[in-house]
């Protein structure tokens, strides 16, 4: 009954994908509610509607693989295994946050799981990913680096420089272009010439694929193929994932300029709902999926409550982790 076994294996994988996506959604919805209630400082960039990208790619990474992320990076971090308690505490600026409250939402990092940092600078993570791959090879590791960036980032020089570099040195980088069609308040198409990331990668010899980034199963399959090639030493690959940012650019932006119709259509393609329909179709009980949702919501509420109950960082820590060479007195 090889087929059954295979189906069973796939089912586990699909449920794993589902769980990760649901956890990302629950994390961000919890954070957004707190932000709206005025409990959370700083800007918050939510990836609601884009969860299949992070979940599908990271399911194909090992713990010792590394990722770099961008300003919309909660999902990437969670999918890579970052602890949500530390993430939530970081978003609230509390002691116990992964960065001790110094970074906040836009600068989440969890080096213990290979998450080398979100980034407040568009395309800032691309050269870092390339260098991390070069360093890993120098160390004799077969770990790879997945580099997440948005469609907006492909118009910055570091994208071209990073692709060329990675191709030139055949580095183990999986470039992941998370194409949600917008960059802040401007449509990507209005500021991007030509067919986009895939063609640009191919033009310098980096094999690239484009798939529906709201289809978690397709993302997983494509990421699996490309990550395997990268790990084999075939050089860098680029995965282009078409998705949609369901909310505004930041928690305070309503993106009111987008036609309601467009957003409604995108909602109908919600990646979590799609995967759920597929799982139900495969015979998974709705109750089992609901339990995953309830578990994620409970997990994130607990993380929020713990973060809110956590102390603020000691102000003296503002002076720590600047430089080994510093002899700065606390003011």
């Amino acid at each position: 009954m090889a087929e059954t076994a295979l189906a069973g294996h796939n089912m586990c994988r699909l449920i794993e994908l589902y769980r990760t996506m649901v956890r990302i959604r629950a994390f961000e919805e919890t954070a957004l509610a707190a932000h709206r209630a005025g409990l959370m400082p700083g800007p918050l960039h939510a990836s609601i509607g884009q969860e299949a990208v992070a979940a599908g790619v990271c399911l194909n990474l090992r713990r010792d693989d590394r990722i770099t992320s961008n300003h919309r990076g909660h999902g990437h971090a969670i999918a890579k295994g970052a602890g949500v308690a530390g993430m939530m505490a970081e978003l609230f600026g509390r002691a116990g946050g992964h960065c001790g409250g110094k970074g906040g939402s836009m600068h989440i990092a969890d080096f213990s799981v290979g998450m080398l940092g979100a980034n407040g600078v568009v395309a800032g993570g691309i050269p870092i990913a390339v260098g991390a791959a070069q360093g890993l090879r120098l160390l004799g590791s077969d770990a790879i680096v997945a580099c997440f960036f948005g469609d907006g980032a492909i118009n910055r020089g570091p994208f071209l420089e990073g692709l060329n570099w990675a191709a030139l040195y055949r580095l183990p980088v999986l470039f992941v272009c998370e194409d949600n069609g917008v960059a802040a308040f401007t449509r990507a198409g209005e500021v991007t010439a030509g067919p986009g990331a895939v063609a640009r990668a191919q033009a310098i010899g980096v094999a690239a694929e484009s798939v529906d980034g709201n289809d978690a199963v397709a993302v997983d399959a494509a990421a699996g193929r490309l990550a395997a090639a990268v790990r084999r030493g075939d050089g860098p690959r680029l995965l282009h994932l078409r998705t949609y940012r369901l909310l505004g650019h930041t928690s305070t932006d309503q993106a009111a300029w987008r036609p309601e119709q467009e957003v409604a259509e995108a909602r109908a393609r919600d990646p979590i709902a799609r995967l759920r329909a597929r799982l139900l179709g495969e015979g998974v009980a709705a109750a089992a999926l609901d339990a995953i949702i309830a578990g994620a919501e409970a997990e994130m509420s607990a993380a929020r409550d713990a973060a809110l109950a956590a102390p603020w960082p000691d102000p003296a820590t503002a002076w720590t982790d600047v430089l080994d060479a510093d002899r700065q007195e606390v003011a």
């Binding site: 400082p41 700083g42 600026g93 509390r94 946050g97 960065c99 001790g100 409250g101 110094k102 970074g103 906040g104 600068h107 603020w312 960082p313 102000p315 003296a316 820590t317 503002a318 002076w319 600047v322 510093d326 700065q328 003011a331």
Partner: peptide
């Protein structure tokens, strides 16, 4: 002080 600007409100204030 010669410190990057931290995120957390009490650190920023400090």
């Amino acid at each position: 002080p010669r410190v990057p600007v931290p995120f957390s409100p009490p650190l920023e204030e400090a």
